[in-house]
Design a binder for these strands. Structure first.
Length: 970
DNA sequence: GCAAGGTC
């Protein structure tokens, strides 16, 4: 018997072969330069004699999806046709040799064992391998080896307990591939041609204005933050501060005290600051009237600075970009090359937990040779070692990033990245830093103040992880119950400061949180929006900030003007795609259904965008030609508060008053300068925004300025500080946990005028969540197509974890538990039974999901509350929706996007009330179903409708009645 | 001349 094993990448093939062979298997070159073939014999349980094994690999995906030749040229068809154009999937050019190797090796194999990574993409790559092998061995037996780490015991267990390939996961990926291609190509061609037509400069530069479901939300984040910065209106606040100068030996300083024994202690106000100047003045006067301070409490407690978590790709990119000041893409490229050289482990991982059996000692031992940290590595080996903290992520495919061997001849950025990874690894294997924190609480005339000191007792991990700073601050002695006269009591004025522009690290975080891209692609998306000239990286001091170009702002503003409920510049559509993929994985939807549904939805958005693209083009043009535009970016003061990552940083401007008349001389000038600077910047930014942004000035002025309130919980003085709208009177809570606001749908269509609940935060606020609920169905959570929030972070790499779970989910002859039993979700909480309110085949059906209250925090656990296996439920969905749907487009199990009724697609909708506004386009919109493209591109002119384009106007000159390829103007 | 996702 001979089994052909295929891994996702050469390094894994080598490791697996080494483990299964129990040493060094013989190996021979394959047809591809990187993918070698390893041969050995293996004893499989239940099989007589030894099995001949060959382990080889692919290099990621084997195939690429693209349109057929008749659609490839940009003028060959209307961009709208790309939503239905056939997609061809072929071996990529650089996978030709790999395919040949697979076919050669499979010819004399009895079985194929898939060893790709255990995630959705891995299942899809597995399906590509199966397809390739079946070209020569149609009926070959396929087995899936499931492993979560390259550890001997796991690899042997995976080999001996194979499961089925997860075809649903592969289908989910397939649907994403098709959707991304159609959306990307259609929108890119449409907007590029339309903008080139409108704007000669873009035409001359032949500049591609690409659209991508990850690119545009990435751009959207940058523009949102930029808008927040320039529209920011500072708000003044006031606070009290108490100073006491004291000798370290206790008591007031004496003349013989050396200077380093004298400490100026600043006591901060427990109220933080208030936005009511009069209130602060009154409190200050009260303190002045009886200025004696009483020490209410002196509290010392042990504190610690936590050592870093194990390193994930996203964290490497974030911290690397912040600390090493390299772009995320450069960091990933360097990590990749260090991995290739054998210095680092696999650099694309979401895992921040080490496997129980991880061999730390061997890896730490390799670092004892290092001149800089060798001694520390030795101390770890000698007993200082402490297991790294566990993070919350585990992709079950790769361990956290760590050094795999010692490197002593690296230079430049390679060395800086290697050093960071290694110091972080060693730091995570040490113990937290320990210190003693002392807090002194005092009161003056009933007002409370506090000061803190820190004594670092053990630096521990800080000795090797030198990127973390922890500075001690020694307080002179204070005794509970004592009284003293403050050296000064000040009232200070400050102002809220605008958020800073995004750094690349910020953007990586935002993308990660919102599920835009994956750990391996986030950096590429950022590089892409820079390459497309939507975003510029502007260096200010040591930090690079991302500033949208006029083109980038124009595009986002243009799209925002369309008021689409699901903005193309926001992450919500991407999340829907992810959510739909998860439904395919759960067996609730089929690939065909999902693709049809998504394509239908996107095509509607496309048609709407296309018809109104003139507005977008005008907006872009206005930004590109505005002589003031682009100055804004430079005018925005960036990098001023480099040390503070807080978006709502406080800028303490000046002393507005001091403790006594005698100090006025010192406080006066400082106040004057500071106030002028703060106010000047605020007005300047606001007016710049207003002057260059035309009509938006009013809206910007009407927006509430972000307000900071750092007052303590005991704050009872500043009623003005209370945030509006947080009391939630009858409103549901949004995903941020705050009261949602009621809004009205303005998009033309069946739901125009309908009320819904959404997050109260302003548009453009990156922290605004995507909560959505119709006001009239607030108690019946509808399906995601109505906007109920899907999970925040996509399951780029998510399949069930342990073998048992895997088996129960993957085997169709399942150990599916019966109804009524208590179930536990993936968080190991008691699962909660809910009922599907969504119209369609599963309406009213009960299911079990994660027990957490917050939708945002729920795990991916999902089970139907009946006896059906996932396979059965898939069939149920198929049959019912297939019957209900019209025509060849699959079933319409969801609601029609035009009239809101279920049972038919929007294209087949006969409900005349569907168009209420926007008479210019919508009323005359031809039906999609009536004019499906068939045959070659030559026949396209005959189709009178359904594809936009010709009837919506030529993409070159904008006139109707001819295709852009036939445009007389070209 | 379009996307995003693997990997090298």
């Amino acid at each position: 018997m001979r089994i052909l094993c295929v891994a996702e990448k050469p390094s894994i093939a080598k490791s697996i072969a080494g483990i299964l062979a129990g040493g060094h298997p013989s190996n021979r070159p394959g047809k591809d330069k990187f993918c070698r073939n390893y041969d050995f014999q293996y004893r499989m349980p239940g099989v007589q004699g030894m099995v001949d094994m060959t382990v080889t690999s692919v290099r990621g995906h084997l195939t690429n999806a693209d349109f057929g030749p008749e659609y490839k040229a940009w003028y060959s068809c209307s961009p709208a046709d790309l939503f239905t154009a056939p997609i061809m999937t072929n071996l990529s050019d650089d996978a030709k040799a790999i395919g040949l190797n697979l076919r050669n090796e499979a010819r004399n194999a009895d079985a194929l064992m898939i060893w790709t990574d255990c995630d959705r993409e891995g299942e899809h790559i597995g399906s590509e391998i199966v397809a390739e092998v079946r070209k020569v061995r149609r009926n070959i037996r396929v087995m899936r080896a499931r492993f979560s780490a390259i550890i001997d015991s796991q690899i042997h267990a995976a080999c001996q307990n194979t499961v089925e390939l997860d075809w649903r996961a592969a289908d989910a990926v397939e649907s994403r591939i098709q959707l991304d291609l159609r959306i990307g190509a259609a929108f890119t061609r449409m907007q590029t041609l339309a903008l080139q037509n409108h704007i000669p400069a873009l035409n001359e530069a032949r500049q591609v204005i690409s659209y991508g479901p990850c690119q545009f939300p990435t751009l959207g984040f940058v523009v949102d933050r930029y808008n927040k910065v320039i529209e920011f209106v500072p708000e003044l606040f006031w606070l009290l501060q108490l100073h006491k100068t004291r000798s370290m030996s206790g008591g007031d300083p004496a003349p013989e005290d050396p200077p380093d024994q004298i400490r100026k202690v600043v006591f901060n106000w427990d109220r933080g600051h208030l936005f009511d100047k009069l209130a602060v003045e009154i409190l200050r006067d009260l303190c002045r009237a009886s200025p004696l301070a009483t020490v209410d409490n002196v509290n010392s407690k042990q504190t610690r600075k936590w050592k870093p978590y194990p390193l994930t790709t996203v964290e490497l990119q974030k911290s690397g970009s912040r600390l090493l000041r390299l772009t995320p893409k450069r960091i990933l490229d360097i990590a990749e090359s260090l991995y290739q050289k054998g210095f680092l482990s696999y650099p694309r991982t979401e895992t921040d937990q080490y496997d129980k059996e991880f061999d730390f000692n061997a890896l730490i031992a390799k670092q004892t040779a290092d001149g800089a940290w060798g001694g520390i590595a030795q101390r770890l080996l000698d007993g200082a070692f402490e297991r790294p903290r566990n993070g919350r992520n585990n992709d079950k495919a790769h361990p956290p990033i760590h050094p795999t061997s010692h490197a002593n001849n690296l230079t430049g950025d390679d060395k800086r990245v290697y050093d960071y990874v290694t110091r972080r690894f060693l730091g995570s294997c040490w113990t937290d830093a320990i210190g003693t924190q002392t807090t002194v609480n005092v009161s003056v005339a009933g007002e409370k103040f506090h000061a803190s000191g820190l004594v670092i007792l053990q630096r521990n991990y800080l000795e090797v992880f030198t990127y973390d700073k922890w500075e001690g601050n020694l307080l002179p002695p204070f005794v509970r119950g004592e009284t003293f006269t403050p050296t000064r009591l000040e009232m200070k004025q400050g102002a809220t400061t605008p958020p800073k522009l995004l750094t690349e690290a910020d953007l990586v975080s935002l993308m990660d949180k919102n599920g835009i891209g994956t750990d391996a692609t986030i950096a590429e998306h950022i590089a892409k929006v820079i390459e497309r000239q939507y975003v510029m990286s502007v260096k200010e001091g040591k930090t690079s900030y991302l500033v949208p170009s006029t083109l980038g702002i124009g595009l986002v503003e243009g799209y925002n003007q369309l008021n689409l409920e699901k903005s193309l510049c926001k992450p919500v559509l991407r999340r829907e795609t992810e959510f739909r993929m998860s439904l395919i994985c759960a067996g609730e939807r089929t690939k065909a259904e999902t693709i049809a549904e998504s394509v239908n939805e996107y095509r509607e958005v496309f048609a709407l965008t296309n018809r109104q693209f003139g507005r977008i083009a005008e907006t872009v043009l206005s930004y590109l030609t505005d002589p003031n535009a682009g100055q804004e970016a430079r005018a925005v003061e960036i990098g001023e508060h480099d040390e503070d990552d807080d978006v709502d940083a406080i800028n303490l401007i000046s002393d507005s008053d001091s403790d006594g008349d005698s100090d006025d001389g010192g406080g006066g000038p400082a106040r004057g300068q500071g106030a002028a600077r703060g106010a000047g910047r605020g007005r300047g930014a606001a007016s710049r925004g207003g002057s260059t942004r035309g009509g938006r000035g009013g809206a910007a002025a009407g927006r509430a300025a972000p307000r900071l309130d750092r007052s303590g919980p005991d704050n009872d003085g500043g009623s003005k500080d209370a945030r509006p709208g947080s009391d939630g009177s009858g409103s549901p809570s949004c995903l941020c946990g705050e009261a949602a606001v009621e809004r009205t749908t303005n998009k033309a269509g069946a739901n125009q005028g309908r009320r819904f609940y959404a997050c109260a935060k302003p548009m453009g606020d990156p922290s605004k969540c995507d909560f959505f609920e119709w006001a009239d169905t607030a108690n019946t959570r509808s399906g995601f197509s109505n906007g109920s929030a899907p999970r925040t972070v996509p399951a780029k790499r998510s399949v069930p974890a342990d073998t048992d779970e895997w088996s129960s989910n993957m085997r169709s002859t399942s150990s599916w538990s019966g109804s009524g039993s208590v179930r536990r979700c993936d968080c190991d909480l008691q699962a909660v039974r809910r009922t599907s309110g969504k119209s369609g085949a599963n309406q009213g059906r009960s299911f079990w999901t994660c027990g957490r209250e917050s939708i945002k925090l729920r795990c991916k656990f999902f089970e139907w509350d009946d006896d059906e296996s996932p396979t059965t439920s898939t069939r149920a969905v198929n049959s019912s929706s297939g019957g209900g749907g019209g025509g060849g487009g699959g079933g319409a199990s969801g609601a029609c996007y035009r009239c809101g009724q279920s049972g038919h697609w929007a294209s087949d909708c006969t409900n005349e009330q569907r168009t209420t506004a926007n008479a210019s386009g919508r009323g005359s919109a031809p039906k999609r179903g009536g004019a499906k493209r068939r045959g070659s591109g030559k026949t396209r002119g005959g189709g009178s409708g359904g594809r936009g384009g010709k009837d919506d106007g030529c993409f070159r000159c904008g006139k109707k009645g001819h295709w852009s390829s036939e445009c007389p103007g070209t």
